[in-house]
Design a protein around this nucleic acid. Sequence first.
DNA 1: GTGAAGCACT
DNA 2: CTCTGGGTGCTTCACC
Length: 692
Amino acid sequence: MEHAAELTPKQCENVLAFADQMPITRQLVTLRRDVPLDFSLGNCRFTGVPVHAVRPIFKELRLHRLMDQLNDLAAGEEDIIPAAGTESATVVGFAYHLVDNQEKLHALAKALRGQPSFAFDTETTGLNPVGSDLVGLSFSWRAGEAWYVPVRAASGDTIPLARVMEALGPPLRNPAVRKCGQNMKYDLVVLRQAGIEVGGVDFDTMIASALLSPGRSSHGLDALALDLCGHRKIPTRELLGSGRNEITMDQVDTRRVCEYACEDADFTWRIKEILEPQIESGTVRSLFRDTEMPLVEVLTEMECNGIALDAAILADMSEMLAGRMTELARQIEDAAGHPFNIDSTKQLAEVLFDEQGLKPVRRTKTGRSTDAATLEALREQCDNPIPNLVLEYRELAKLKGTYVDPLPGMIVAKTGRLHASFHQTGAITGRLSSSDPNLQNIPVRTEIGRRIRGAFVAGRPDHVLLTADYSQIELRVLAHFCQDRALLEAFRTGQDIHTFVAAQIHGVTVDHVSREQRGAAKAVNFGIIYGQTPFGLSKALGISQAEAKAFIDMYFMRYPGIRLFIDGTIAEAQRQGYVQTLLGRRRPVPELGSRNLQQRALGERIAVNTVIQGSAADLIKRAMVDIHRELHAGGHPSRMLLQVHDELVFETPREAVQAEAEMIRTRMSGALPLDVPITVDLNWGANWLESK
DNA sequence: GTGAAGCACT
DNA sequence: CTCTGGGTGCTTCACC
């Protein structure tokens, strides 16, 4: 028997190398009969090789066509999977089962009901869980063994979805059966749309990894399987292709999806077995168990809820912006004397600096900067109209291209709403991030930008959007950490903190503080959080560096506790190599070990900022979990829609808004016990703009 | 496809 | 003398 295959010489080399180092303990499964094979790969010839020795070679090299041929060869030996409990200790292999009839389905469901815990994964038609359809589910509760249940396939019969849900729904819902998964929120959203609310959400490997190894570059399953298990997973690209030829999972041959999906569940289980003991014995146990894992379900619900958008408002804005941008473009090109692409920084730099003779302010890595700060400086230094026109053009282009035009197209047809993704491991500090679309950077600063917020509306009759903002949360966290008496006192007496600080620094009473004095105090207050330098402050306030330095010195003299906190935090980071937030979230700060002065300064800023920003993130996460529980306890009609770092947005019936606001205020201000009061500002209205 | 520049938010 | 605020995600251009 000879099976020729088109292999590159390099692949042949790999096969031979792999076959050579294939110890007998790497045999995947024990075949009932050995079928010696003679075959050739390219110009390499193999003779008398047992099937079971060649299978792992093909598998490791992802030679699916050859695997198919091999399976044909071994026809009649389908049942090569050792029955439970019979596998020998030397078998370290893969036993992946395709559940393609009712009997197998019921056997699986029965097995799942009997497990104290299992890993599961879903395959879908898309990357965004809302609006994607379920293609199949995979399960595993023992390393090396997994099951795949197709519910939607390109070819071949599948068991009707209703039957699958009937069988698998009970074990999935059962809170007594602990579930683990990789990025479980994704699967929870998918299954919720299929009518299943998964219970017993217990262990997310992605989140565990993020807490245990915050310095890792990736917490993806592929990376974890490689690093923790030494296993190179089938790349998704191999099933779906890439670019214009990309297909969806429901178009892939079910047997190949089975291999892929089972591998996901299998390795999720193996990784959970590795990480769980580390979580349970480590300092992050409570953070993981009491905050991050419960938050998975909160975010699942937020994503399913989505937020309504008034597309007509944005359509009007788009037209208005287009008109104004055309006008600006014409004026810019008139001034330049010829048409050019204003969006191109390279072309703009040529116009400004080569043709118009303006003096470059700052260099970028590749050329001369044309950013907003540069254009503002150019506007001041000459009467050329172009910088100012470009500034306005840029503002409008940003709003139109990033928000006004794309957002309406992202409304999910089935719900009529926007469903952003919130990423729990997105930010190294512990903050959430948002994407597809990012609803955490909707404009608010400029008048025209704010109008976009007006398009985010309460989507149900007689409802309002209710927003709850932590007031000065990072400064309160700072006050809590540094225990500076003056700062604590300011918050305890309910002062406007910037006015208060300005009054203390200038030695006047709060009612004698000028606008400028308050603005300067505010800039310094924020600067402390971000690790600002005299240079940065002087730029922010338009004062000299000497003045800025004097102001900062005065600040630290007035609040010596802050200086001690900053120095102590940096020293701790140097000693331990990492910093820690209120709830014990860690972040390594390797920059502090750098020989580069600039890098070390960055490390110092990172250390201080992470403690403050990360602790504020801990706080709002706790509040979200508490509020979610209260909402589910019953009697509360509000839905949580968005989180924007220090703000939560809810949709609430107008008649209940007062009571809901008070409940939310209580939960948010009581989320964690700080040594300063935590105040929450609540506002509501028909849209996000009115509720601010 | 990838990196850089620029900019929206907190 | 040089550098000079933490953390994200998205769009566009330019280049490979």
